[in-house]
């Protein structure tokens, strides 16, 4: 029943045996204990579980762990290189882009992918880019500001 998989998460390669039905988010949270990736819904809407799969922002609740075999995953825990916060993390901090923090890792990972493709976005583009990440605390205004600030500091 179990499948052997080899997944590189935040630069570290893990080998594990997983049931086919285990979702990637469950693998990250329950097997690797990387609990920064959250589960906010069960219909693949809220984006709290967003991680990068081979660099592409992905809802890790809508992918089986077994599908991650051979892939490179980056989670929020892997974003700060050598303890230096990523410009997105800094910007979210400085612009008060989070309140309860639950959606934040997903929002940051989505923004990461987005800024790679669109390094100099308008406010409207940022709002559209975050359509798949729900936040119930901030009203999004400071999230948008933070993404914009991160874009500026990265360019």
């Amino acid at each position: 029943m179990g499948h052997s998989i080899k997944v590189t998460v935040n630069g570290v390669t893990h080998e594990a045996t997983v049931e086919p039905r285990m979702l990637l988010v469950q693998f990250l949270r329950e097997v690797l204990l990387l609990t920064g990736t959250h589960i906010g819904c069960d219909t693949s809407q809220c984006g709290a579980c967003t991680v990068l799969v081979d660099g592409v922002a992905t809802k890790s609740c809508t992918m089986f762990a077994v599908q991650a075999d051979g892939k490179e995953i980056t989670t929020i825990e892997g974003l700060a290189a050598n303890g230096d916060l990523h410009p997105l993390q800094k910007a979210f901090w400085e612009e008060h882009g989070l309140q309860c923090g639950f959606c934040t890792p997903g929002v940051i990972m989505s923004s990461y992918d987005f800024l790679k493709r669109n390094p100099n976005p308008t406010e409207e583009e940022i709002r559209h880019a975050l359509e798949g990440n729900y936040c119930r605390c901030t009203g999004y205004q400071n999230i948008v500001k933070a993404v914009k600030k991160a874009a500026q500091s990265m360019s």
Partner: peptide
Amino acid sequence: IGDPLVRNR
């Protein structure tokens, strides 16, 4: 379609 994360996959 959907949202950017849906479109990614």
